[in-house]
Design a protein around this nucleic acid. Sequence first.
DNA 1: TGCCCTCGGGG
DNA 2: GTGTACGAGGGCA
Length: 787
Amino acid sequence: MVSWNVRVLAVSYTKEDDVIIELFGRTDKGKSIAVRYRGFRPYFYLVAPPSGIAAELKANANVVSVEDAELFHDGKDRPCKKVTIKYPWLVPDFRKAYASHCRVLAADIPFGHRFMYDLDLGGCVRVTGKKVDIEKYTTDLVVEASEFQNIEPFKPELKILSFDLENSIKTDEILTICCAISNGGETKHESLVGDEKSMITGFLELIKRTDPDVITGYNIDGYDIPFILKRAAHHRMNELGMGRDGTELRDVGKFWRAKGRIIADAWWNAKKELRPKQETLNAVSKLVLGEQKDDVNPAQIDQEWAADKEKVVRYCVKDAELALRILQKIAVLEKNMDLATVSKLPLDDVLNGRTSTLIDSVLIREADRNKIAVPLTSNFDREEQIEGGYVHTIDPGLYDWVGVLDFKSMYPSLIIAKNICFTTLSRDGKIKSPEEGVNYLDKETRLGLLPQVLERLMKQRDETKAKMKAAKDPAQKRYYNGLQEAIKVLMNAVYGVFASSFYRFTNPKIGASITAFARENTKSIISQLESEGVRVIYGDTDSVFFQSPGNTLDEALELGKAIAKRYSKEGATLEFEKIINPLFSHGAKKRYVGNVVWPEESMIVRGYETRRTDAFNIQSDSLTKVFERILDHDTDGAIALARETVQAIAKGEVSPEDLVISKTCKNFNTYKDPDNQATVQTAKKLMELGYEFTPGMKVSWVVTSGRRTPIEVEPFVSGRKFDKTPDYEYYARRAAMTLARVTDTFGWDVQELLTGTQQKSLFSYDGGKPPRPKERKRQRSRKQTRS
DNA sequence: TGCCCTCGGGG
DNA sequence: GTGTACGAGGGCA
């Protein structure tokens, strides 16, 4: 018997003579490994099944055993039957068959996960067994395992294959497939050219030969992978095995899976991680690598290919490499390995799975240990959304020296403090939630599973933080920091699944009472602060924004620290997070901009969209400039700028270039009502003008009549003279609408920006109602800038 | 205000 | 594979 230490990347099962669990991973010696394990059986529970059911089950040839069990369900311990069956793929049938007779439990847990839960395996394991030789696997090692042990987590260097293809727009044929393969520190390039069939075969062989843990590229899920499959189908090719056992790719909605490997689209991950304003490979490369794509025009790929094939191949290799480096730079694999460690799951499940998967992994293990029932995930009707956090209204205006206080891990803290759990939910519980009739048992009567798990995670996080502090080696420090961040993510995810829609362990009452407790908490802090004379200007869920009466950083700092200290109590720590000076809002919740001046200087924009690509230049540029002036306390300048911008557009004193709107145009028939689509209209006119158009191209236009339906547009081609007249009125109105959201605060609404004059006197009344907010604000904003 | 539709990335 | 998976903005009623 030999042992290997493995970072688990994926878990699955296969049907041979029997069911075999497969773990795929990489060892601490850098070898890829496939681990096989026989003899694990699927099972589920039935709650108090009617008499006769047990006998019926025992007689079923697919049933291995029926045993008695007792599980805590719906407030008390109940007699159950544990039904073990032969094959995991039969579980759904059993589930359906018995659901009408009694409650079925734990019959929707992926078999691989069930295996990991039951052996309580984590993200890294020591596998003991013997090496075997099974040809279908592409891994360095194949092992028949007899034993598993948990070990200290480690993060092996993963082998990543990034690829990109170029295809003819005219004929749809693949021109080249290029790869950048990273193994440890070094990166190798491979490029395939020639006839399409052999390129595809060559690509599959390359995957088989190099056996990457991760396959990446830019938008491969949505483009390159389906494209290769489409072309392979065209040639009637089969056996497109990219899996580590030679099996084919699986289509999971928008995404793709290859057994034993992780398909991690660099675009998708960069999008999640960075939320860039522009998501093109070029823009993201510039953003994270400070580097650009090669100079090839993809819209003219056929011409480029005809002119210089080697140049196109270089370009393609470069794209593959950029995607690879982006994935490495944003370190998603590392971060997710940490999350896999704390949630005890294979990397693939963490990277590509839902957050409920993470919580399941932690909660189901704990439930099993405590003999607590694991219900099925019910088919959620996404009816009523539970009420969210408390958001304090913000009056429009400009505020100086704003301090921001934050409750530390508010939701987890509340769950622990109030013993909130599906196991403690009880009408006669002593802990009364603000929600009518939703009460929880106190800890002494029954400690909730959820609070128990969260308390352990919190403790674990504190310990990890302590280790981080104690670590001398920077690499060690980073390692512990990653882990403690991952625990934080996991804890916040716990609240997420309980609060959002339906989750197997909860009902809306629990989520609703968590937020209800939270609202009560935040509101009470706000009113206490107000009663002692501190001016609270805003608050959202777990944060409170107060205004320092002084006009220095030191005064704001002192007040913030004092409040944090005074209002922190056991289980609800209030932290002083930052100082913003100044802060501006036009009076809508969740929308503000400001200059953060402590602890670090930065600009903060929340809710305002200054970065849309389908807005015309003037629209986004002027909004940004208006914000800059406002934060410089130059409100008059901001208003003047907004007014002048709108006026200039209305008078036609702008170049058509600044009015161009760009969007992608897909195949016309993919639109419900193509002729109503400005993109389609533009594309058709482009073709009439003799320009080439291919579905998927970005088209640019200028609106020539915004009043008609559908809107009338004219294509804009850079370099070609634009000889139509833009609908300046339409553009002025759109700019005014964007800018007025902000200038309204200072007394200028859409109409007034359009006409350039204020129509109402400052103190006019509106139908007997109190003065319009904007007028109050005008005064207030002046006052705010005083000391 | 809330629903419905579309887009984004790729060539 | 005991799993069906985005998220945000704009248009329109």
